[in-house]
């Protein structure tokens, strides 16, 4: 690894991943009323990797996502996006703007808006008040929305209120919104919860195809799904990293078996 000369010279908001790493979580501690949801958690993500996070309930998976996306502030430790953006000092919308997108566990779309409008609002572009007051969709943006609709298989539902979609379609719409946002890092919380087998497979394909051009973090309980997509798996337990490595190694790990897989 080469150390960059002077990263601050680059004035743009672009995430600086010249070190090859896109996310640095170091010694993160978050406690709620004395309960340590995260306990000096350390985790690094290489740019372009697809990482699965597993662990029993209360292991700190969602809390970790909350810290990365700015919803929760850590008591101590650091969280950097690239080598320049200190996530603990940024608000949710700023974090989203520098390129971290998040999909919630429960599908969260705008129920009163049409599917098309959901994607329009998610589309990458200026988020300033004045811009949105006068914004008109350009042909290129309409094409991108159409492409997004196609990717998530909702072209026929484009003008339906999102609240009328099925559970699986909502999951997909939210993933489509995430893609429209064009983030560098995608945080995906339980993407296949409540999906049918074929929907699960399509989701696995989609997430796998994103890796490389995007960095993807998937939190999932469904072990079969994790086996399908996982390259590297991180096991969290009581707010710490218990084990990390390829799926086969993790499955054979005695510690992991005792706290999680074996149960």
């Amino acid at each position: 690894m080469t150390v960059p000369q002077n990263p601050s010279l680059d004035a743009s908001d672009e995430v600086d991943t010249r070190q090859g790493m896109i996310l640095y979580l170091e010694d993160l501690t978050v406690s709620f009323d004395g309960f340590k949801a995260l306990d000096e958690l350390c985790l690094y993500l290489r740019e372009g990797e697809l990482r699965c996070i597993i662990g029993p309930n209360g292991a700190g998976k969602t809390t970790m996502m909350d810290v990365i996306s700015g919803k929760t502030r850590p008591d101590s430790g650091s969280a950097f996006f690239g080598i320049r953006h200190d996530l603990t000092q940024m608000s949710e919308h700023e974090i989203a703007r520098v390129g971290i997108g998040r999909k919630f566990q429960k599908p969260t779309v705008f129920p009163g808006h049409t599917v098309f409008e959901n994607l329009e609002l998610a589309l990458r572009g200026s988020r300033s008040l004045w811009h949105t007051l006068f914004a008109k969709l350009s042909g290129e943006q309409q094409d991108r929305i159409a492409l997004g609709l196609d990717t998530v298989g909702l072209s026929d539902e484009a003008h339906l209120p999102a609240g009328q979609l099925s559970h699986g379609q909502k999951q997909w719409l939210e993933i489509g919104m995430l893609l429209a946002q064009d983030p560098k890092l995608l945080l995906v919380d339980e993407p296949v919860a409540g999906l049918s087998l074929s929907e699960t497979e399509r989701t696995a394909e989609l997430l796998s195809s994103l890796a490389g051009t995007h960095t993807v973090v998937v939190v999932e309980h469904d072990m079969e799904f994790v086996r399908q997509i996982a390259r590297t798996v991180t096991v969290l337990h009581e707010g710490r990293v218990l084990a990390e490595g390829p799926m086969e190694k993790i499955q054979a790990d005695a510690k992991v078996i005792s706290v999680y897989l074996g149960s």
């Binding site: 996306s69 949710e92 919308h93 779309v109 609002l121 998610a122 946002q181």
Partner: peptide
């Protein structure tokens, strides 16, 4: 929250 995490 969806709006916030969409960057608005």
């Amino acid at each position: 929250s969806r709006v916030m995490f969409s960057g608005y």
